[in-house]
Nucleic acid binder design. Structure first.
Lengths: 235, 235
DNA sequence: GCAAAAGTGTTGGAACTACACCCATGT
DNA sequence: ACATGGGTGTAGTTCCAACACTTTTGC
């Protein structure tokens, strides 16, 4: 039996994370300058190698933690990328993950080891290997998933306002929604708890702050709702 | 630079395919008796090893072809599975794909090399490694995707009747739909062309045959429709 | 003539889109 | 007082789920 295993080619297995963030205005991606000597001046996704005794999920968690010092982050597998020429140095299969973090959490915990920087989705640099393709697929997946699952909250800080969430969804879908319809829809999920305080400073009137009803969120996180307003039949 | 590559552990990369079929009655899975000596009596998904110069998609295509002699089959990546203990023989990362074939096409082309057999989804045998988990994920993905994309037709023969498609969707979702609502919905996609002939033999009256409007299907295959009736809010 | 499956229409309710005005406050 | 963004309500429409009877034909 071992023969059949032995004669097979082996590959390096890399993990690459598409890290989405939201600063209240724009959807952003966290990219790093590659530590490896080739392409020193190329930006790339945060990545690393699979270690002998860890699962793919564990490896992705570990690598995300190395960069951001964050745990418990939304991190989901996007898929495997294995074009034989994707990494010119050596045959490598990459398993891509996408993560949703809120920029505030991140800023306090940033690791300096990797020269990391947030990029606007609309202004991405040249990227290593097939990372641009991974990002394209990640944004499609995010759009797909966020249309029916309340994962948008993963990108928000502890407390937030309705207009902020709307900004997020508008950034994700690259279009504008009617604020009356949007707030009705997002509140109808029953996932938001209105707080007494208002967010001051940004607008003159101030917007009420909300927090996520984490209990309901856990329960309903695999429910199937319709979050995205659909003017003239997009989607 | 090469140092950083060299010191990393390498893995075997396997491909495993969840092959769905539909015989007009039930949703089925095509499983094989494993050729490798261990677990000779265990059924498993059709699988194979990644070769040096092929991409993951190509490898999955090749392996599916080895078993079924079919090309042009719907075949989509499900994800990568990399638990360090998933394969007790050696550290292996598996990339799973799911395929949708119609049983008629397959029957004529079956390869005898692999002792393959169709199993009802409700009556699966013990399975190798983490294959049961892959199957679970595949059925979830199929349900998810079939709810909004017309991929159900991939499981149908050239011509088919409305009651047959309904049987398929009922098999996929494990529930029964109202036939009036279902036929209205499926016809409203505009993807079906009604033929003159009726299917005879099964029912006394006979049901009209339809075929897929392949042109519209290509165009709309990434469109986002709502296929599944939703009695008391399932999904 | 009856059993078995195919085929078809209507209605009430829910959900969605479109749309416009008043409110609170910092300047 | 005015500019800026926050907050809310309604009406017309569409879409969907629920539901029952007629048709065809092989036996």
């Amino acid at each position: 039996m071992l023969d059949l295993y032995k004669q097979q080619t082996k590959c390096l297995v890399a993990l690459d994370s598409i890290i989405f963030g939201f600063d209240g205005e724009e959807l952003k991606l966290l990219l790093v300058k590659r530590g490896v000597q080739t392409d020193r001046d190329t930006w790339s996704l945060m990545g690393g190698w699979l270690k002998p005794n860890e699962s793919l999920d564990q490896a992705a968690d570990r690598i995300l933690f190395e960069l951001t010092n964050l745990t418990g982050v939304f991190l989901e597998q996007l898929g495997a990328f294995g074009d034989p020429l994707r990494d010119p140095v050596e045959r490598t299969v990459a398993v891509a993950y996408y993560a949703l973090v809120n920029v505030k959490d991140y800023e306090t915990k940033i690791s300096d080891t990797y020269h990391a920087k947030w990029f606007s989705m609309h202004d991405l640099p040249e990227l290593l290997f097939d990372h641009a393709q991974m990002i394209k697929m990640a944004i499609e997946r995010l759009r797909y998933k966020a249309a029916f699952h309340p994962i948008g909250f993963e990108l928000m800080p502890e407390t937030f306002t309705i207009p902020q969430i709307q900004n997020l969804y508008e950034a994700i879908y690259g279009s504008n929604f009617d604020k009356r319809n949007f707030s009705r829809k997002i509140l109808s999920t029953g996932l938001l708890i209105k707080l007494k305080e208002k967010q001051k400073g940004f607008s003159k009137k101030g917007a009420f702050l909300y927090k996520l009803d984490t209990e309901k969120y856990q329960t309903h996180s695999d429910s199937f709702l319709n979050f995205v307003p659909n003017p003239d039949g997009m989607l």
